[in-house]
């Protein structure tokens, strides 16, 4: 079998792995919030059921842009997932963080395009909020990454992960404590959980982008969120939590990140949109800036 086909096969595996892992996290996350709210919650495989069901129902579409956008969205995010090292392993060999940051955007753009082609203003409002929020969380996040680039003179995620493989003390969470706080705050916004769930805001804008999606479109919407969780938790683990030598430790660490997020989500209320961004800029931003200044001068 030729090398290219083998790589393609591996990548396909990663794609489905990422989707499943994300769905699993979503199911577990629902249980976590349910327990905090003293409910039992659905079984952990509920998300799988949801997605499969979605794909089997007939759905409505308005035009070709909607199909295009939705496919582009999931495609873009899966392509991003290929670049995130999983347990010190990256099929493609390189995993430049700049590519991850920008490639992720094509997912957002696709989704934005698809749902705004549905012509529902609520969807568009949701997208406009999501994009605005992006302005809030990307800046602190990038500042912290730049601090790492300064240290390692490399923008490869794998380099960062490997550098933390020397025991608990070598984790970046200790090396960049301020940066970690900043990224934790930003992460809350990245995955769109409270207090930064402006995009979905169910009671306000009827779930925003999801409002017009039905059937397999909604299913792809679920998968989008799943892959997004995989990519973003994976990023955090690789950046701060020491990466992982084995696949199960990686999964545990990733879930730990998501777990924290769900806990915060369960107890917070939603900000107003400009409050949210300002909060991100002021808190996450200043922590990140301090980290960057520190690294630039003494690091």
């Amino acid at each position: 079998m030729n090398a290219h086909a083998l790589t393609a096969l591996k990548l396909t595996g990663i794609a489905f792995g990422a989707m499943s892992l994300g769905l699993l996290f979503m199911g577990l996350g629902r249980i976590v919030s349910a327990r905090i709210q003293r409910r039992i919650g659905p079984p952990f495989y509920q998300s799988f059921i949801d997605v499969i069901k979605c794909f089997t129902k007939t759905s409505i579409t308005h035009n070709f842009v909607m199909d295009l956008g939705i496919i582009m969205a999931l495609g873009g995010l899966i392509a991003t997932a290929f670049f995130v090292p999983f347990a010190n392993f990256s099929v493609l060999g390189s995993s430049s963080v700049v590519i991850v940051l920008y490639l992720m955007s094509i997912g957002y753009l696709g989704m934005a395009m698809g749902v705004s082609a549905s012509g529902n203003p609520n969807a568009t409002i949701g997208i406009s909020r999501a994009l605005a929020l992006m302005l809030g969380y990307k800046i602190p996040f990038v500042m912290v990454i730049m601090a790492m680039i300064l240290t390692y003179n490399s923008s490869d995620l794998l380099t960062y992960a490997l550098a933390q493989n020397h025991g608990f003390g070598s984790w970046h969470i200790f090396k960049y404590p301020l940066g970690f706080i900043a990224v934790e705050i930003a992460f809350q916004a990245m995955v769109g959980e409270k207090p930064y769930d402006h995009m979905i805001a169910p009671a306000e804008i009827a779930s925003g982008p999801m409002v017009e999606l039905s059937g397999k479109y909604l299913g792809i919407g679920f998968l989008l969120h799943a892959v997004q969780l995989y990519v973003e938790t994976g990023l955090i683990v690789n950046l701060f939590l020491g990466g992982a030598q084995t696949w199960y430790i990686m999964m545990v660490k990733m879930f730990a990140v998501y777990f924290t997020t769900m806990c915060i989500n369960a107890v917070m209320a939603r900000y107003r949109i400009e409050q949210g961004i300002r909060h991100l800029w002021i808190w996450a931003g200043s922590f990140a800036l301090l980290q960057l200044v520190y690294t630039r001068i003494w690091g």
């Binding site: 393609a8 990548l11 396909t12 794609a15 979605c54 794909f55 089997t56 129902k57 007939t58 759905s59 409505i60 579409t61 308005h62 035009n63 199909d67 939705i70 496919i71 582009m72 999931l74 495609g75 873009g76 995010l77 899966i78 392509a79 290929f82 059937g215 397999k216 479109y217 299913g219 792809i220």
Partner: peptide, 19 residues
């Protein structure tokens, strides 16, 4: 490749109709 995967999934899903 990623888009191809998704496109196949999209094709495998139930039919959609235009509204």
């Amino acid at each position: 490749l990623a888009v191809l995967i998704v496109f196949i999934m999209f094709l495998l899903g139930a039919r959609q109709h235009k509204v």
